[in-house]
Design a protein around this nucleic acid. Structure first.
Length: 509
RNA sequence: CGGGGUGUAGCUCAGCCUGGUAGAGCGCUACGUUUGGGACGUAGAUGCCGCGGGUUCAAAUCCCGCCACCCCGACCA
């Protein structure tokens, strides 16, 4: 039992913070609502970026960069958009600091205030208007990796911070159909990524009018379920129709020789995914990393008493490491800066590593240390193992232990094992998710399930903003989505009794 | 931005009611014994007691003001 981590049963919110702290993923910053992403946490983000970026490129997108600051006037061009974001914009009003009576004070007031981007539809729309003249200029398929700022009143590490990192894809198309295809294509990219890389099972679906993005015609999302039974939106994809094209004048001369407004989309995922990953998989002992985003895939803990034992163990550890990373990398690692924890690249592309903990500490301490950091495998190597020519392999996910012969411990073997862990994590999370989808035939039943069990509640619902607001007030739950798989199902609305669609309700983060 | 709470060592907190010059546990440093799942001993370092003002011979403690953070609401990738 970890002594620095509250259990999930005791205090789920504190558990989440304790896990982050113990694994050194992030820290609080001097600025309220902003967090520092520490190297261990940033490595997860880098893994997310690396994989998603590849998926974006493979679906035809390119990267670019648009500015952090946006003229205030841009925001007001799309009515719904301002409505949605005005309340949480950081505003830049001055250009310098001056010496005043009480020290430095802002000076050089700007003629027009600039806002720190809460999202970039507006600047990008402005630029697309200049870049697009003809149908031959379409589609425009651009993504950017950046930070955005939304001045949130209540923040939680990773899940909701004032500043966060994300990617935002922005595309412009010739037809409504193309835009819709793109919106759904990227939603599927997100689903595949969440499941194949983060091992988080998600439900694809469409948002209700009440929940959609400010300025969008249709919003789709992938929804995940956390271990406390709350839902978390893990990614969104919006079909913006011609709303932004009209607001920013993105027009083109069509094949029919007529001027038309383009059809645009936008889609994004953020560092919130790291929060989702933590809450979907970690346990009372700390972080559990899905193998594909783990910076370190194996931590080797040598065990020895005397110097002679240390020498024998070190020689054996060397054999194990060489077998996993190859002789070339083993030699190369010697030339790099190394502390008491030696690291070797197991994968030269992802820079995932195998590390050896030579610190002067007790083996038990080291076990807990790496366990809390969620490393998929720990290898315990002591005199007994050297003698038997084997390794004590411990799996983080379920504490399973297995003695593996040195000859068997190849890079290929480890890759297979890591893939196995991914699969087990995904299955475990999916089982939990599936067990927490329940059907309700009446509002009473919906309330009962939400109060007693949590999770997703599946029922028929006829969309109505005021009714949704009332349900939210009474149960704290919202319609998370209209699942894509069952979008054509119709039944008796649990509120009005009229024909409604099948939706999932849940209390969400 | 409303309601509640808390600010004392890196962390968790005691001390405050009843004013008398700063404490514990954990962590950190050094040395020694240890070392197959969180060891123990010895020695040490660490504080504008959130900030500003007031009362007093004397304030972490009492009074006033401010600020920050946390929890609950409203808002949200």
């Amino acid at each position: 039992m970890a002594k620095n981590i509250k259990t999930r049963a005791e205090d789920y919110a504190q558990w989440y913070l304790d896990v982050i702290k113990a694994a050194q993923l992030a820290d609080y910053s001097p600025v309220r609502g902003c967090m520092v992403i520490r190297p261990e946490g940033f490595a997860v983000w880098e893994a997310i970026q690396r994989d998603l970026d590849r998926r974006f490129k493979e679906t035809g997108h390119v990267n670019a960069y648009f500015p952090l600051l946006i003229p205030q006037s841009f925001l007001t061009k799309e009515a719904q958009h301002v409505e949605g974001f005005a309340m949480e914009c950081a505003v830049v009003t001055h250009s310098k600091l001056e010496h005043g009576a009480h020290g430095l004070k802002p000076g050089g007031e700007l003629e027009e205030p600039l806002i720190v981007r809460p999202t970039s539809e507006t600047v990008i729309g402005h630029m697309y208007a200049q870049w697009v003249q003809s149908y031959r200029d379409l589609p425009v398929l651009i993504n950017q990796w950046c930070n955005v700022m939304r001045w949130e009143l209540r923040t939680r590490l990773f899940l909701r911070t004032a500043e966060f990192l994300w990617q935002e894809g922005h595309t412009a198309h010739e037809t409504d159909q193309e835009a819709e295809d793109e919106t759904l294509r990227m939603l599927e990219v997100y689903r595949a990524f969440a499941e194949d890389v983060l091992a988080i099972p998600v439900i694809k679906g469409r948002k209700t009018e009440a929940e959609k993005f400010p300025g969008a015609v249709k919003t789709y999302a992938i929804e995940g379920l956390m271990q406390d039974g709350k839902a978390l939106q893990c990614g969104t994809s919006h079909n913006l129709g011609q709303n932004f094209a009209k607001a920013f004048d993105i027009k083109f001369l069509g094949r029919d020789n007529k001027i038309a407004h383009a059809w645009t989309t936008s889609w994004g995922v953020s560092t919130r995914l790291i929060g989702a990953m933590i809450m979907a998989h970690s346990d009372d002992d700390g972080l559990v990393l899905p193998p594909r985003v783990a910076q370190n895939v194996v931590a080797i803990v040598p065990i020895f008493k005397s110097d002679e034992e240390r020498a024998k163990v070190a020689a054996f550890v060397e054999k194990v490491v060489r077998s996993l990373v190859g002789d070339e990398e083993f030699e190369a690692a010697r030339t790099r800066q190394q502390g008491e924890v030696a690291s070797y690249f197991f994968d030269k592309i992802t820079h995932q590593r195998v590390i050896v903990d030579w610190r002067d500490a007790r083996p038990g301490d080291k076990q807990f240390h790496w366990e809390q950091r969620g490393i998929p495998f720990r290898f315990e190597i002591g005199p007994k193992d050297v003698e038997g020519g084997s390794i004590m392999v411990k799996r983080r996910l379920d504490r399973a232990r297995e003695v593996v012969k040195l000859e068997k411990m190849t890079a290929q073997h480890l890759r297979t094992e890591l893939a196995g862990v991914h699969q087990l994590m995904f299955e475990k999370a999916r089982k939990f998710r599936d067990e927490n989808i329940r059907d309700a035939a009446s509002y009473e039943e919906l309330k009962k399930i939400l109060a007693e069990k949590g999770g997703f509640v599946r029922c028929f619902f006829k969309q109505d903003k005021s009714v949704e607001a009332r349900i939210k007030e009474e149960t704290k739950a919202t319609v998370r989505c209209i699942p894509s798989d069952t979008a054509d199902r119709r039944g008796r609305c649990i509120i009005s009794g009229e024909e409604g669609q099948q939706v999932l309700f849940a209390v969400a983060y």
